[in-house]
Simulated scan of single mutants.
Amino acid sequence: MPQVRVNVRTLANVKAARKEKRNGRDVMIVPSATLPDNVVMNGIMYPAEEIEKGYQSLDRTPAPLSHPMVNGAYVSARDPEGINLGWIGAWNENVRRENGRVFLDKVIDIEIANRSEGGKAVLNAIEKGEAVHTSTGLLAHLEAANGDVPYSHIARDLEFDHDAILLNEKGAATPDQGVGMMVNSKGEQEQIEVINSALEQADNELDWAVESLARALDRRQKASVLDRMKSAILEALGYSEREPSTNRKEDDMPVSDEQFKSLSDEVKTLSESMGKIGDTIANAVTTALKPVLDQQAEMVANQKAKDDAEKAELVEKVVKANLLSEGAAKELTLNALRELAPKANPGKAAALNGAFKGGNEAPAFKLPKGD
C-alpha cells in the first residue's frame, strides 16, 4: 500500500480560549478538533478503528506555527530543525475522542510566544477572536476500496505527528499540486504524495454556538430558579418583599403594651418554627425546582425521539442505496450517517467541503496508475 502525507485542516475554537497558570507561568488554552469517525475527504475514508488506534499519539506533541519544512522538504515537528523553525511555545494536550470526534487543546506559553513575531501574531489573533486554523499532520497507508462505496481508498496505519497552528495561509502550507519531498525516518528525502484536506466547519461552528447558547440559558435558568427559591422561602416563613414605606410617621409612633405583647408572641412563634425551617426550606426548594426539572426532562425526551427518527430515516436511505448493510448502518452515529447520506442521492456526490470558508484548498490528488 502506498504511503501518503495528509494535512487535515480545521478551525480552532478561539471563542472558548482561556488563560491559566501552569507552574507559575501564564498560558493560553485554545480548544480545537480534528478527524471525525469514518469521515471521507478527497476520496479517502478514515475508519473509526484506525483513528482509535493512533489518535493518542497526538498528546504532548508540538503545535508549531505552520508545518515545518527544511530545504523544501517536510520534516517531523519533533525533528530538531523542525522545532527550531516552528516552535512558538505551543503544544497539544488533553487529546480525547468524544461522540465520534477527536478533540484536543492547544496550550501556548505566553512568555515564550511573545519572543517571536509568529507567536505574537497568534496571540493577537486569539485575543481579537480572529479565525485561527489548525492542521493535523499525519502519515497513512492507502488501501484500495472494494465494492460500490463512495470513496476510492481507505486510510490505514495512521501515524499522527503534530497539530500545527495556521495563520494567513490559503492552503495547508504544501505545494499547489499536493506533491512534495518528505524526510523519512532514516533522514533521507523521498517523494511522497501530499494530500490537503479540510473538514466542514458548519458542524463545528454550530456545535460551539449550541454550547454557548446552552451555557447562557443555564445561567439565566439558574438566576430564575434562585429568585423563585427566595420567594418560596420568604413566603414559607410568612414574609413578603415590599417597597419601603415613605410615611415614617407610623413607624416613629410609640409602641403600646398591647402591641408589644402581640409582637412578642409573634417572635416566640417564629422562634419555635425555626426548628422546622430545614424541612420548610427543603419543601419550598423542591416545589420551586419541579417545573424546571420536568421541562428539562421533556426537552431531553423530545430531542432523543427526534434524533432516533432521523437516524432511522438515514439508515433506511443508506441501506436502500446499497452503501452499507442494515446492521452496519445502525452501528454508525447520527453524525456519521448525516455525512454518508448525501452519497445515497442518485447521480450526486456529497460536497464535503462546501461549508468551509477558510480559503482555497489544493485540488484533490490523483494517484499514479498501479499504486
Rank of each mutant, 00 (worst) to 15 (best):
40 V>R: 03
31 P>M: 00
21 K>Q: 13
10 T>Y: 11
30 V>P: 01
29 I>S: 06
42 N>Q: 14
16 A>R: 08
16 A>K: 01
21 K>Y: 08
28 M>H: 04
34 T>Y: 01
41 M>K: 10
16 A>N: 02
18 R>Y: 15
34 T>P: 04
15 K>D: 15
33 A>T: 14
20 E>W: 05
11 L>A: 09
18 R>P: 07
40 V>F: 05
22 R>P: 03
14 V>H: 01
19 K>G: 14
28 M>G: 05
40 V>C: 05
29 I>K: 01
41 M>T: 11
34 T>Q: 00
24 G>D: 03
24 G>K: 01
15 K>R: 15
17 A>F: 08
39 V>F: 05
28 M>W: 06
9 R>K: 14
29 I>D: 04
38 N>T: 07
29 I>E: 02
36 P>W: 07
27 V>H: 00
31 P>E: 07
14 V>G: 02
34 T>H: 02
36 P>S: 07
14 V>N: 00
24 G>L: 02
16 A>T: 04
42 N>K: 10
29 I>W: 00
10 T>R: 12
9 R>V: 13
23 N>G: 12
32 S>H: 00
28 M>L: 13
14 V>F: 02
38 N>R: 06
16 A>H: 05
42 N>M: 13
12 A>N: 12
40 V>S: 02
31 P>L: 00
21 K>F: 09
11 L>S: 08
24 G>P: 04
40 V>P: 01
23 N>V: 09
32 S>R: 02
26 D>E: 13
37 D>I: 04
17 A>N: 09
21 K>W: 10
22 R>F: 09
22 R>E: 10
13 N>Y: 01
21 K>S: 10
33 A>N: 13
37 D>W: 00
25 R>N: 07
16 A>C: 15
26 D>C: 10
29 I>Q: 04
10 T>V: 12
15 K>H: 14
24 G>E: 02
29 I>A: 02
41 M>D: 10
33 A>W: 02
14 V>E: 02
38 N>D: 09
38 N>Y: 06
35 L>Q: 04
37 D>Q: 08
14 V>S: 03
13 N>E: 15
38 N>C: 06
21 K>L: 14
18 R>L: 14
9 R>G: 13
30 V>T: 03
13 N>L: 08
26 D>W: 09
24 G>I: 01
42 N>P: 07
29 I>G: 04
39 V>G: 00
21 K>P: 04
27 V>R: 00
15 K>S: 14
37 D>H: 09
20 E>G: 08
14 V>L: 08
10 T>K: 11
29 I>H: 01
16 A>F: 00
37 D>L: 03
10 T>I: 13
19 K>F: 13
19 K>T: 14
18 R>K: 15
41 M>A: 12
32 S>G: 10
26 D>M: 12
23 N>F: 12
36 P>E: 11
42 N>G: 06
32 S>N: 05
36 P>T: 04
29 I>T: 08
38 N>G: 05
25 R>Y: 09
22 R>L: 10
